[in-house]
Amino acid sequence: MEKVKVMVVDDSKVSRAMIKGHLAKTNFEVCAEAKNAAEAVALYEENRPGIITMDMNLPDADGIECSRRIHAIDPDVKIVMISAMKDASLVATGREAGISAFLQKPISTNDLIDTMMVLCQNKVGKIAVLRESYAKAFVRALQQGIFSMIGVHSEVSLELDDRRFLDVSGIAVIIGLTGFPMGRAIVYMDVDTMNKFSAIMLNKDDPAGLEEDEASDTVEEAANIMVGRGVSNINDVFKDKEMRITPPGTIYGTNIRIASPKLTTFRITAETRIGKIYLNVGFAEGE
């Protein structure tokens, strides 16, 4: 999925920079910035952003008039008004002009992103939101984690996993996610990859030198670190919805199937020179 394009309409350069800052590291990308109503209409036609943030006070017209003009071009456009004052009459006239949400300055990152996510859900779908704002945090965590712990580069891919089962022969470290959204992350790999991973992490030349349980304990700890980092990446953005991780539960054996009924799951694959390392992350639906 592509990023959701956002246009920021505000006559203040500082306010525009602040909004841009709030949206950094998210799946919302500022594609256009307008400092007055005329520019906003022109840039809207040119860029067709999915969402617009609208200031109330503009030099050539107010935010409501500007919204009305853009709404006339596209009745489906999502406009969030960000203004210093917010009262009932502003909300009422704003709604008539096609504004979907109202935020009062100073805005928090959480409020802005939450509002935009809600507005976007109908447009881009819940799965896209989970993928962009949550699953991708684990993509970075997996790639950076593998590199920082064993110095190995990886090619990482992310896909929606609609299989009913995760098939594991080797090791799977299951870590629960609590808070919002709930779910679980599973880091898994085959025995050969587990042994090589652990040997490198523990500075042993040969995986044969690993003691009993040493390899699985090492992978368990590595998984814990990577999933923890993924959750931190999410908490960095959504500061009020603290996600937490439960201690790991680790399974090993051959031909194990793991089912996660009712979860929307994503499979992240890291291809490395020591084998494939997977991170499957699932989120409870309907949250």
């Binding site: 799977a172 299951i174 609590t178 808070g179 054996g253 194990i256």
Partner: peptide, 18 residues
């Protein structure tokens, strides 16, 4: 307390370390 979603695992003789 907070609880996670359950993970259901199926297989023969696999080990579970908790």
């Amino acid at each position: 307390v907070d609880i996670s979603t359950p993970s259901l695992t199926i297989g023969e003789n696999f080990q579970v370390k908790i």
